[in-house]
Design a protein around this nucleic acid. Structure first.
Length: 152
DNA sequence: GCCAACGTTGGC
DNA sequence: GCCAACGTTGGC
């Protein structure tokens, strides 16, 4: 089992939005970065733990926990000409972009980015590296345990 | 709104 | 294959 940090803009999908869905599940659409896609394609497994991170907002940070409840499959928005995520270079038999489904586990207190940075134990987290912009990053088991302890 | 850092594109 | 120009991310 692996641990991941996945960024979502709360104006788009927040942890509350996820909790409010009838199936408490969301397809993680819109990833248009190859490295992030490859994490989903090659490494994400059913049951992996997801730290649900709110980005591009007033208080960026970890806002809840989720789990991977469907492994990678084609992101439907790449075929939707009305979508901002439409990709003309993608075809049905050769889709470029993938998504996983993520299922709500629980909302947590907000563990802010500044608080994450304040812990030297987490200094090597990919999220915290200078210039890191990836929307999906792996979290080591040790870092995950540390974060989970801080969330409770 | 600014801007640093990174990713992608496309001409050569 | 190089690399300049451009686009995007995302914290501040």
């Amino acid at each position: 089992m692996n641990y991941w940090l996945m960024k979502s803009e709360p104006d788009d999908v927040s942890i509350d939005d996820l909790a409010a869905r009838s199936d408490q599940t969301v397809g993680w659409y819109g990833v248009r970065n190859y490295q992030a896609r490859n994490f989903m394609r090659d490494q994400m497994q059913l049951g992996d733990v997801v730290f649900f991170y709110h980005s591009s907002c007033k208080e960026p940070g970890i806002a809840g926990l989720a789990t991977v409840c469907r492994p990678a499959y084609p992101d439907p928005t790449q075929f939707d000409t009305a979508s901002e995520y439409f990709d003309a270079k993608s075809t049905l038999d050769k889709p470029r972009w993938l998504q996983v489904d993520v299922c709500f586990v629980q909302k947590t207190r907000l563990l802010s980015l500044s608080e994450l940075r304040s812990h030297p134990e987490l200094a090597q987290m990919m999220l915290l590296q200078k210039g890191s912009r990836l929307s999906i990053t792996p979290v080591s088991a040790a870092d995950a345990a540390f974060i989970l302890a801080k969330l409770c």
